[in-house]
Design a binder for these strands. Structure first.
Lengths: 163, 163
DNA sequence: TATTGTTATACTCTATAACTATA
DNA sequence: TATAGTTATAGAGTATAACAATA
C-alpha cells in the first residue's frame, strides 16, 4: 500500500488518536512565543478582570502614576502604542476618574496626564495582582531563569547584542 | 513651589523630553513578552505577505502537509486554536486549492485534511521565508541562547519544571 | 447523549489615513 | 508646514454559545 500518489487527493486513513507531528513548527521561536504570550495574556486578563482593567489599560495607568504630567505622545512612545489606540484607553481611565487630562499652558495642543488619588490606589492594587499572576504562571521558573528570559526577549529585534 | 497637593489636579510641569520611568513595568515578564511577541508577529506578517499567508494560516498548512489525513479537531488541539477559528482558515486554504477537505468514510461527521501538490510547494516556500525572518529578527541571539529561550517559554504555565 | 464541524458574534490588540486645533 | 490629539476604520487573533448532522 505504498500509494502516495502525486496529484490525487489520496484517501489517507485518518490517524485516529495518533500523535500530531509538530516538529517543524517547534523549531521556530515565533511558535513558542505565540503560545507563551497567549498563555500569559489569558491568565493576566482573568486576573485583572477583578478590578475591571485590561493589560494595556493597567500599563498606561501605572506609567501615568509614575510619571505625572506626561503627555500622550510620550506615553504612546514609551509603551509602543500607536497614538490613536491610546485615546480610548485614556477615555476609559478618565471616565472612571483614575486619570486626568489637563491642558498644558505652554502648548495648548497637548494634554498633561495626572493620576487621581483613586488612580494611584488602583495602580497599587493592579501591581499586586500582576505580581501574584506572574508568580503563579511562572512558578516553574527560577528567578535567575526569569531574568535570562527577560534579557533574551529584550534583545530580540536589536540587530546585535552590544556592537 | 512644593505644590504636590493631594486631591487637586496638580498643574505639573510636563517633563518635556524627560526620560519616562518604565521601571515598574519592566519587572514583569509579561511586559517584555508582549513587546517581543508583537515585534516577531509584525515582521512575520510582513514576511508572509509575499505569499499571501497569515501566521496561523501558514502554521495550519505546514501541519496538514506533515500530517495528511488529519481531522480538524485534532488540528485545532495541536495548534491550540479554537475549532470555530479554524473554519475560516481552512476555507481560505481550500479556496486557494492548497488543502482538501474530504469526508472520512468511517465517521461521516469528520473531514480528513490533505494537502494538494500546490499546498506542499507553498508550505516549503513558507518555511524558507519563516527561517529567513527568524534569522533576521534573532540575529543578535546565538543558537544556544535561542534554545534556552525556547525551553524557558515552553515551561511557562506548567506548574513545576520536573516534579 | 456526545462529538464534528459550523455559524454568529464579540472582545482585544494593533495599524493607517485623515481630520482639528494649535504651534 | 509641522505637531498633538482625535476620529474612523480595518485587520488579525482569540473566545463563547448554539446549531445541524452524525455517532
Amino acid at each position: 500500500m505504498d500509494s502516495h500518489n502525486k496529484n490525487a487527493p489520496i484517501a489517507v486513513e485518518p490517524e485516529a488518536d495518533a500523535v500530531i507531528d509538530d516538529a517543524i513548527l517547534h523549531q521556530f521561536v515565533g511558535y513558542h512565543m505565540r503560545r507563551a504570550a497567549n498563555l500569559l495574556q489569558a491568565d493576566m486578563a482573568r486576573t485583572l478582570k477583578e478590578i475591571d482593567l485590561r493589560m494595556i489599560t493597567m500599563s498606561v495607568l501605572v506609567v501615568v502614576v509614575d510619571n505625572p504630567g506626561l503627555r500622550q505622545s510620550q506615553l504612546a512612545d514609551a509603551l509602543a502604542i500607536e497614538r490613536p489606540n491610546l485615546v480610548s484607553i485614556l477615555d476609559e481611565l478618565e471616565s472612571r476618574n483614575l486619570v486626568l487630562r489637563t491642558r498644558v499652558p505652554t502648548d495648548r495642543r497637548a494634554y498633561a496626564l495626572t493620576p487621581t488619588a483613586a488612580g494611584r490606589t488602583l495602580a497599587q492594587r493592579a501591581l499586586a495582582l500582576t505580581t501574584e499572576h506572574e508568580d503563579r504562571v511562572l512558578a516553574g521558573i527560577t528567578p535567575e531563569e526569569r531574568s535570562t528570559l527577560v534579557s533574551l526577549m529584550q534583545r530580540i529585534g536589536s540587530a546585535s547584542g552590544d556592537a
